[in-house]
């Protein structure tokens, strides 16, 4: 029982890290543009496939492949914003919403026609297993947690202390004032899409090695990502971190104590319960 609990907490932390990597990207994009970037899950999926091609087909080492995937996805994210979201920036919000849904369909169908609907698994170099008490954890899982900690810490430092990071925060707090003080908000927008998508590529690569990637996984990822975001408070990075951990842990502990069949229900249930008590999410509500 106790061993099982440690095991599930560890698994929860791993999944939590995965959700955090996805949600921080959604969060910074939402902060700056206030758009629901539903295609983010599809970017994560594409990131997984890029790593899959480089590792499984071209024999590139995993870490290097993941770095390539981060760069390509960053470019892909920036391209999506420029080509799809920017034209509707001054239109009513519903337009961005519909554009996002359209993007998901286009990307997912394109990937299905190229790679087929079946899932693929990325070959992982992290094979060793460690034992912590009576729980077992593979080095790949530890790497997921480590990657999340390092990347999110780097993001927080970037946002807090660098000039560009401050420009990102300023733009998300007041776009027009940012223009007035001389910030090129188009550059800021590209930065958040680039960073968010690169984080997504890490999530996609690691989940592809841990489980699998398949063309329609994006929708599911986006749903989870938004659950985390709403629970934590829209546009808040601490919210995305705490929200990701809560959902990762609830899913795994819920599976243990109740049933793994309802795993995905727990995430949304906890989200609804928290929203009842704090409608703007855990870290939300200061308003703009």
């Amino acid at each position: 029982m106790f061993g099982e609990l440690t095991q599930q907490i560890l698994n929860g932390l791993v999944m939590g890290s995965y959700y955090i990597l996805i949600a921080v990207g959604l969060s910074i994009v939402f902060g700056v543009l206030s758009i629901p970037h539903f295609a983010h899950g599809s970017v994560v999926m594409v990131g997984g496939y890029v790593t899959f091609i480089f590792v499984n087909k071209l024999g590139v080492p995993f870490i290097l492949a993941m770095l390539i995937s981060m760069i390509l996805c960053a470019a892909f994210g920036i391209l999506l914003e420029r080509s799809a979201y920017r034209p509707v920036r001054n239109a009513p919000p519903i337009n961005a919403f519909i554009v996002a849904l359209g993007l998901v369909m286009i990307i997912d169908n394109l990937m299905t026609s190229i790679f087929g609907a079946n899932q693929v698994i990325i070959k992982s170099p992290f094979k060793s297993t460690y034992t912590i008490g009576s729980a077992h954890v593979t080095s790949l899982r530890l790497f997921m947690i480590g990657a999340c900690v390092v990347l999110v810490a780097a993001l927080i430092i970037f946002m807090k202390y660098t000039k560009l990071g401050k420009a990102v925060r300023a733009t998300s707090q007041n776009r027009e004032a940012s223009l007035i003080v001389g910030i090129n908000t188009n550059v800021v927008t590209a930065i958040v899409f680039g960073l968010g998508s690169a984080f997504g590529a890490v999530a996609g690569s690691l989940i592809g090695a841990l489980f699998a990637v398949y063309p329609t996984m994006g929708t599911f990822i986006t749903q989870k990502g938004f659950a985390v975001l709403i629970l934590g408070g829209l546009g808040s990075i601490p919210g995305a971190i705490v929200g990701g951990l809560i959902i990762g842990l609830t899913e795994n502990l819920g599976s243990m104590f109740i049933s793994s069949e309802y795993k995905d229900v727990f995430a949304f249930l906890i989200m609804i319960i928290i929203l009842i008590f704090k409608p703007s999410g855990l870290f939300g509500g200061k308003g703009k």
């Binding site: 420009a167 300023a170 707090q173 003080v181 001389g182």
Partner: peptide, 19 residues
């Protein structure tokens, strides 16, 4: 006013010198 509400007074001033 259009300040950056979640930034400190000092950070707001810094942003004023952004260019």
């Amino acid at each position: 006013r259009q300040l950056f509400p979640d930034m400190t007074v000092l950070e707001n001033l810094e942003m004023g010198a952004y260019a």
